[in-house]
Design a protein around this nucleic acid. Structure first.
Lengths: 170, 170
DNA sequence: TTGATTGCAAACCTTTTGCAAGTTC
DNA sequence: GAACTTGCAAAAGGTTTGCAATCAA
């Protein structure tokens, strides 16, 4: 939708971050960041790869993995992970919450001021220094709610993983 | 520590659940459940396998994966997952929160009454029916805090994954 | 006996690695 | 020109699957 706008903002941040860390600003880094920034559905590395290849058909899967990793290190993206859906990337780096569908494993963003002032426990004396937090709400998305009970999947039944269009080749 | 007690409670629950679902109560299911119930460190499937083999040296990795999956379906365990540490299993099925170390990726349980009454948004009119929630606190565990800055890992530096002792062989 | 589970071996998928060639500054 | 990245091919993990043998009820 407003990919251009998002992309531009993020691109500037990328330039700054690369300069600060003495890293070269490569074409691949730019395109991967833009592909990620244009989405709010927490794509997997392969989903990012597919999108990147629309603009840069020659990128290798390896590079996309490496660049995504770099973006996380630079603080321009965040890795998230929920059982069943594996590792995903989120271009939103500010504090926010997630809605996780226990049926289709989709992960959606969810922001609300009601959860911004959570009482953050002080555990420093004990064993942990808290930097930030995220509330994960588990439940059923609209599609899965419609589609059936969503209670217990049949024991030993396989979860229907939505493997996205996958771009094969190294 | 008090494995016996925990194991017994859980075993009863397993019997009930199997009967209700018409599933046979196999030795493997019993032992896997006990292995999992005796821990509070969210083991991976392979870590569970290692423990199960102490009592039942002949189990196959495949079976442990399948049984863990079944336990989740039966509501006797929960899958958790955080980037870097992959899929892990938690015998605690009641609502609780997690402390996630951003350095070593350890995941610890964290219970506090302060977070039991979180204002749960009603999103049913929109797109999501919330069943429950879990607060993930990200930060540094004591060990990692001591060990260094923990701020930015060097760009492109590899995270030190604590691959646990892994029992090879199928 | 019947239907489900187990173990095995092999397939699968995702992610990582070593190294030569190509880029960025 | 020096240092870093990229692409490739291959390895490494972790997880799943098909099938015959075995087990619980």
């Amino acid at each position: 939708l407003n990919r251009k706008g998002l992309g531009t903002d993020k691109l500037t941040a990328l330039e700054v971050a690369c300069r600060r860390h003495g890293l070269p600003l490569t074409v691949q880094r730019r395109v991967v960041l833009q592909a990620l920034a244009g989405r709010d559905d927490h794509p997997t590395a392969d989903e990012v790869l597919a999108e990147v290849r629309q603009r840069l058909p020659e990128v290798s899967r390896t590079t996309v993995y490496r660049v995504l990793d770099t973006l996380v290190q630079l603080g321009l993206a965040v890795k998230i992970c929920s059982p069943g859906s594996g590792v995903r990337f989120d271009p939103k780096t500010h504090r926010h919450n997630h809605l996780v569908c226990i049926r289709c494993e989709k992960v959606m963003d969810f922001e609300t001021s009601a959860l911004e002032a959570l009482p953050i426990p002080d555990l420093r004396a004990q064993a942990f220094t808290i930097h930030d937090y995220s509330v994960h709400f588990r439940g059923l998305c609209r599609d899965c709610e419609k589609r059936g009970d969503g209670r217990a999947k049949r024991a030993r039944g396989r979860a229907t993983r939505s493997k996205a269009t996958r771009a094969r080749a190294s």
